[in-house]
Amino acid sequence: MRENISDIDYQQVMEYALDPLIIHSNHKIIYVNHAAEEFFRGTKEEIIGASPLDIFQETSKEAIRMRIQSAYEHPAELIEETIYRMDGTTVNVELYCHPILMGNTKVIQTYVRDITTRREHEKKQKEIVKQINELSATLVPLLDGIAILPLVGSIDEERAHQLLTDVPIKVQTQKVNCLIIDFSGIYKLDSIVTEHLFKINHVMSLLGVHCILTGLRPELALAAVQLGINLEGTLKMATVKDALNSLGIIFTSDSSK
């Protein structure tokens, strides 16, 4: 026998939902489910009757007030906010609200989702990317005035821009007058990134720094030509070892000992 959807007890559906749910009208909370009690660290009796604006920071309240008002007409967009729990602690959340009918009265139902763990993960990821970017702009000193810039991994536009910004500063700080830029460790590039990387060579020449490019694969050389980058006056070698040999620094491999 097919069940009639009108027989579903929606209050039970809301009560046992895993995400905190709040129903409010005219800036007054009239219902919270069990998940909301646990999330806000308070009882229904403590929460019901309060204003939903009370959980927001002062700087956000006016915008939230307008958002709630417009939500009576149509669902509001998903937003991220920092809100207060009843014990005064703060938490990062996603908020989504929409109008529903309670009897003949239109009220607002708000979903709250804790995104603290996601934010912490995103923060760690940004720190890792920052560290990688900093390492990618590291100049490896060899002798006085000579250093290598090893380009490694997948370089996106942000990382390429940081290289273009950081490398000239480090070259001047370390008093480098000959820079070997090694492309052999790069495995992913697009045209924008390629242009940024070859601009480093141009900036070095403006600073009076002699550049040697090594590890240029055919596709990189072709990309440079297609972008109209002129490398005629730049020394190009197959490997870093070849570049060092051209500078008179002879490295003998273990196999030849």
Results as ranks from 00 to 15, higher is better:
Met1Gln: 08
Gln11Pro: 09
Gln12Arg: 14
Glu15Cys: 07
His24Thr: 04
His27Phe: 14
His27Cys: 10
His27Pro: 00
His27Asn: 15
Glu38Met: 06
Glu38Val: 09
Lys44Thr: 10
Ala50Asp: 12
Ile55Ser: 02
Gln57Ile: 14
Glu58Cys: 03
Glu58Met: 05
Thr59Tyr: 07
Ile64Pro: 01
Ile64Trp: 01
Ser70Ile: 11
Tyr72Val: 11
Asp87Asn: 12
Thr89Gly: 14
Cys97His: 11
Leu101Lys: 14
Arg113Lys: 15
Glu120Gly: 00
Glu122Asn: 11
Lys124Tyr: 05
Lys124Ile: 04
Val140Asn: 06
Val140Gln: 08
Pro141Gly: 03
Asp144Thr: 12
Ile148Asn: 04
Ile148Gly: 06
Pro150Glu: 03
Ile155Val: 12
Ile155Pro: 01
Glu157Leu: 14
His161Asp: 11
Leu163Thr: 08
Thr165Trp: 08
Pro168Tyr: 09
Lys170Ser: 14
Val171Phe: 06
Gln172Trp: 05
Thr173Gly: 06
Leu179His: 03
Ile180Gln: 01
Phe183Asn: 01
Tyr187Val: 04
Lys188Asn: 13
Asp190Glu: 11
Ile200Glu: 02
Asn201Cys: 13
Asn201Trp: 02
Gly208Cys: 09
Arg217Val: 03
Pro218Gln: 10
Leu220Lys: 02
Gln226Leu: 12
Gly228Thr: 05
Asp242Tyr: 10
Gly248Ser: 09
Ile249Tyr: 06
Asp254Cys: 13
Lys257Met: 09
